[in-house]
Amino acid sequence: MNWLKQLSGTWQKNQLQRPELVSMFDKPHAKQWVAIDCEMTGLNPKKHHLLSVAAIHINDNTIDTGNGMHLVCRPPVMPDRDTIVIHGLRTADVEHGMGYDEMLALLLPFIDNRPIVGLCTQLDIGFLNPMVKRYMGTTLPNQIIDVRQLYSRRMGDRTQGIPHQSQRLTNILAHYGIPEMGAHDAYNDAIMTAMAFLHLRSQL
């Protein structure tokens, strides 16, 4: 399987249209990750839009909150009142946000070759990858780590049959006594995800 992964990585690297990002394909350093979280207008990447993304470096046992990144984007369609109660971002918050290419020009070098840690990573990456591919010619080459899967691995049979409830971030935080910082804020969610990851990384 390793040769398949190497072959896939080589193919992706050959598709790269932005040589300044070639280091994203380098082997990551040990004990370095990046926690990310996205806020969107909905759950379907084909009809909903990214509103904000936060990213924070994790270096061994340290979460580098002093150098984190929280980028607010201007979506092609402004959020409506029904979704504002979910993500908390109003038209006034995003109408002067940055374009997606401008956001990626900042985000991708920050992510670099670090494994990406998140909660519901399939959803976040599902929104990011199409715009990443348009921007640099290929999708994210990084290893993707979902905290929910690590928690399920840690808990074993105790999460069988109730995965959606038992693997919510609030439940994971409560299990480890991690204080909640306020949900549906990308930066706070990225920090909380990073804290949960530090308790669960032995499951990698």
Results as ranks from 00 to 15, higher is better:
Asp146Gln: 09
Cys120Leu: 11
Asn44Asp: 15
Gly182Asp: 07
Trp33Gly: 01
Ser8Phe: 11
Met69Phe: 07
Leu4His: 08
Thr65Arg: 14
Ala54Tyr: 01
Arg158Pro: 00
Asp93Gly: 01
Gly156Asp: 03
Met78Thr: 03
Gln143Asn: 08
Ser8Ala: 12
Tyr187Leu: 14
Asp112Asn: 15
His29Ala: 15
Ala92Leu: 06
Thr83Cys: 15
Asp101Trp: 01
Gln122Tyr: 07
Ala186Phe: 03
Ile162Tyr: 07
Leu16Pro: 03
Ala105His: 10
Lys13Ile: 05
His96Ser: 10
Ile162Met: 10
Gly9Tyr: 08
Gln32Pro: 01
Thr62Gln: 13
Leu50Val: 08
Val72Ser: 04
Asp185Glu: 13
His96Lys: 12
Thr83Pro: 01
Tyr100Cys: 04
Gln160Ile: 10
Met131Phe: 08
Thr62Ser: 08
Ala105Ser: 15
Asp189Trp: 02
Thr62Asp: 11
Ile125Leu: 11
Gln149Val: 09
Tyr135Arg: 13
Leu173His: 06
Asn113Phe: 05
Met131His: 12
Asp26Gln: 13
Gly161Val: 03
Asp60Val: 03
Leu108Val: 10
Asp146Ile: 04
Thr91Glu: 15
Ile125Arg: 06
His48Gly: 04
Ser166Trp: 10
Thr138Val: 14
Ser202Ile: 04
Arg90Asn: 10
Val22Cys: 09
Val117Cys: 01
Thr83Tyr: 12
Met136Glu: 05
Cys38Thr: 15
Gln122Glu: 14
Asn44Val: 06
Leu16Gly: 02
Pro45Glu: 03
Ser23Asn: 14
Asn2Phe: 14
Asp157Val: 04
Pro141Ile: 11
Ser23Trp: 05
Pro75Gly: 06
Val147Lys: 00
Val53Pro: 01
Tyr100Gln: 09
Asn188Pro: 05
Leu104Ala: 11
Arg18Gly: 01
Ala35Glu: 00
Lys47Asp: 00
Gly88Thr: 09
Asn113Val: 00
Leu108Lys: 09
Asn67Glu: 13
Thr10Asp: 09
Arg153Tyr: 09
Val53Thr: 02
Asn44His: 15
Met78Ala: 12
Ile58Leu: 04
Leu173Ala: 06
Met195His: 11
Gln122Thr: 11
Leu4Val: 09
Leu51Ser: 00
Gln143Phe: 04
Gln12Tyr: 12
Gln167Ala: 11
Gly9His: 11
Thr62Phe: 13
Lys46Pro: 00
Thr83Ala: 15
Arg158Gln: 12
Leu204Trp: 07
Ala183Ser: 14
